[in-house]
Design a protein around this nucleic acid. Structure first.
Length: 193
DNA sequence: AGCGAGATGAGCT
DNA sequence: GCTCATCTCGCTC
């Protein structure tokens, strides 16, 4: 089990979004491990990306996206949901992050079921706000270092071929829909997990 | 299985 | 005030 190093997050946000597919998000709570394979991501960049939280510059909320790469950017939305991003950008950009949209549960499935109040495994972590609820990730995890084995981190997982990745427009946004910055594993690859 | 609405609050104009 | 990187439930087909 190898934790992904910080250098991994220092490349272009869009590339990191693709490369995060197949990696494993790990949550450690009171010694218990809860984890899942990352199977869907989205890239959000800077002033060239109208849909990004950083499009209009730095605020108290989005400051993590300008900070050190490899850390968590967590935000609260729709009055009740949290979403997690991994801060990632090339040195050419001042801000950027990758939204984690979907996981395939690995460890701690009973914990996830309790968090989500359902025993339906396919409905545990198949959405950005579902996975944070399942892993109990909230604003407390804002700025967590994903490159250190702490409460929330990302480790090596599956080897993914480029041909196994499908890209499309990002979900749930009305701006910059021409950018094909949503990435997920092909469904036939998914079904073998 | 697909659609519409409601939940519910922070951030921005 | 209105928008929002969402989810769930209930109603209809």
């Amino acid at each position: 089990m190898t934790v992904i190093p910080r250098s991994f997050y220092g490349c272009d946000t869009v590339d990191v979004a693709k490369k995060l597919l197949g990696k494993i998000l790990v949550r450690q709570i009171n010694g218990e491990m809860i984890s899942g394979i990352i199977v869907e991501t989205e890239a959000y960049r800077y002033k060239d990306d109208e849909a990004s939280h950083t499009y209009r510059g730095m605020t108290k909320r989005n400051r993590a996206m300008f900070g050190q790469v490899g850390k968590a950017y967590v935000y609260f939305t729709y009055g009740m949901h949290y979403c997690v991003n991994a801060v990632a950008r090339s040195p050419d950009y001042e801000a950027g992050a990758v939204l984690l949209r979907s996981l395939v549960p690995q460890q701690g499935i009973d914990f996830m079921m309790r968090q989500r109040s359902t025993s339906d495994i396919s409905n545990l972590t198949n959405g950005p706000a579902k996975l944070t609820q399942a892993l109990n990730v909230t604003i407390h995890e804002y700025g967590e270092d994903l490159t250190k084995q702490s409460g929330l981190y990302i480790i090596e997982g599956l080897k993914i071929k480029k041909s196994d990745i499908v890209s499309g427009p990002r979900i749930g946004i009305k701006k910059a829909t021409d950018k094909m910055w949503n990435f997920k594993l092909r469904t036939d690859v998914l079904s073998k997990l």
